[in-house]
């Protein structure tokens, strides 16, 4: 009984830690601009598929991953420079739609240049499962969890302890006031896209040995990550992680204890209920709308 419970928990943590990393990417751009970047899943794809492709050109894995991260950062900057900035609007909805367009573009590009086949990145430290009280977890899942933890700490430090991080929060609260005190909102926005690109690519590369990777891997993972971010409270790094893990664990427990047919339905219903009673998510700051 306990071994089963533990196995479902591990299964949930494995899936949930990937959702959490994707959710963190949403958080950064949301914090800087209130834009929801629907190309976040594609950053993940660039990280995973890009690493595989660069390894095929003969790069060793660590170098390939770093190069793929650089690629995703470039993609993030280009989206901001060529699409978001050119739109010259502060209206959020058109900007969100632009990110959907960017995601289609990136997916199409990957399909064209890297092909449509599915690839697997080798696990960082082998495939021997770790056995804990009758349940098993792969070392790669621990990598995803560990890197998730490191990223949360770094982000918390960045947003609360560095000038740039604080500037980013300031821009999100009031772009005009931020400009008055000498912050360049354009630079902050570009920085947030670059950061989100890097973070997405890290998530993609570290999760690729588990999730496998293909040009459209970002679609579903991006959506789940978005749900996780909303569940945890958009804008809160801690909330993103909690939301991701919770979503993964709910899925696994539903599949294990209720029925795999309802695996996706039950968590989404719970998410709806949570948002109904706590509209700003589990860890979100209460929205203060000034009139």
């Amino acid at each position: 009984m306990f071994a089963e419970f533990l196995q479902y928990l591990f299964s949930g943590l494995t899936a949930g830690s990937t959702y959490a990393l994707v959710a963190l990417g949403f958080t950064i751009i949301y914090n800087a601009s209130h834009i929801i970047n629907f190309a976040q899943g594609e950053f993940l794809m660039i990280g995973g598929l890009g690493s595989v492709m660069l390894m095929q050109y003969g790069l060793p894995m660590p170098l390939a991953i770093v190069a793929a991260i650089v690629l995703a950062v470039l993609a993030g900057i280009l989206i901001e420079k060529l699409a978001i900035e050119r739109a010259a609007t502060n209206d959020i909805v058109p900007l969100i739609i632009i990110t959907i367009g960017a995601s289609l573009f990136l997916r199409g590009g990957a399909q064209f240049f890297w092909g449509k086949s599915i690839h697997a990145l080798p696990a960082f430290t082998g495939n021997t499962p770790i056995n804990i009280a009758g349940a098993t977890i792969l070392p790669q899942s621990l990598w995803v969890l560990g890197i998730g933890a490191v990223v949360v700490c770094l982000l918390a430090w960045f947003f609360t302890r560095t000038l740039t991080g604080k500037a980013m929060l300031a821009v999100s609260h009031n772009p005009n006031a931020a400009r008055l005190v000498g912050i360049n909102p354009r630079f902050i926005l570009m920085l947030s896209f670059a950061l989100a690109g890097a973070l997405g690519a890290v998530a993609g590369a570290v999760a690729a040995p588990i999730t496998l990777t293909v040009y459209d891997v970002g679609v579903m993972l991006g959506l789940k990550g978005f749900v996780a971010a909303v569940l945890g409270g958009l804008g809160s790094p801690l909330g993103a992680v909690a939301g991701g893990l919770l979503l993964g664990i709910m899925e696994a427990f539903t599949a294990g204890y209720i029925s795999s047919e309802y695996k996706d339905a039950v968590p989404f219903v719970i998410v709806l209920l949570v948002l109904f009673f706590m509209p700003s998510g589990l860890f979100g700051s209460r929205a203060t709308e000034r009139v």
Binding site: Q7, Y8, G256, K263
Partner: peptide, 16 residues
Amino acid sequence: ETYNNSDTDMTAQLTN
């Protein structure tokens, strides 16, 4: 048991 084609972990179903 079933799983979605985009799922990334099926250990729960296999445990069952």
